[in-house]
Amino acid sequence: MPPVAPRSGDAIFASVERVNAELFTLTYGAIVRQLLTDLEEVEEVNKQLDQMGYNIGIRLIDEFLAKSNVSRCVDFKETAEVIAKVGFKMFLGVTATVTNWDAEGTTCSLVLEDNPLVDFVELPDTCQGLYYCNVLSGVIRGALEMVSSYLNGRLGLSVDNLVSMKTEVTWIRDMLRGDDAFEMQVKLVKQVPEEYPYKDDE
């Protein structure tokens, strides 16, 4: 029997190595500040943060799997729950809630009431288009791309359609723009079946 996936990341959070929250927040702030200086365009900074997150995500997934003992999620709903309850707790020390499922079960929102990345942060008028936490959306995109999941049967696909998850993550609400919480919309867009990587005549 595979180990049952933990429903909460508290135990793991207690056992992993941690850094000072302020150091973390300020380091991230310094990175964003430096990107703004280097790239000048706010749009470019958003892209760069997303790319950085993606690169983090494709590595972070292995650490997550190794430490959390999560074996496999049966569907995208469970995946979202595990990210919100275990993943966020393990790496950010906070938990998110999953809401706003669409009818197909392919789109949902992760809501963060509390976000350690944005302590001490205020967006100046010149940076209103900046998604300050865009690194998080990249992390989720990258991490999910490395694992596979059953698609919800309601899409009319058989359960054999086990896929690598390509997702789109967009920000719906942002506290730095005056909203009451952070809300990320995670949309499962594309499925990439795995193939035997060698050709017969190689």
Partner: peptide, 29 residues
Amino acid sequence: PQLPGQGCSFHSFRTNTYKLSFMESPSGI
């Protein structure tokens, strides 16, 4: 082709001269 984590999986097999142990993570390692 199967995806990592799909279906059941085997842990090891044994012959008279060696034993092969196998692990696959959901990320395909």
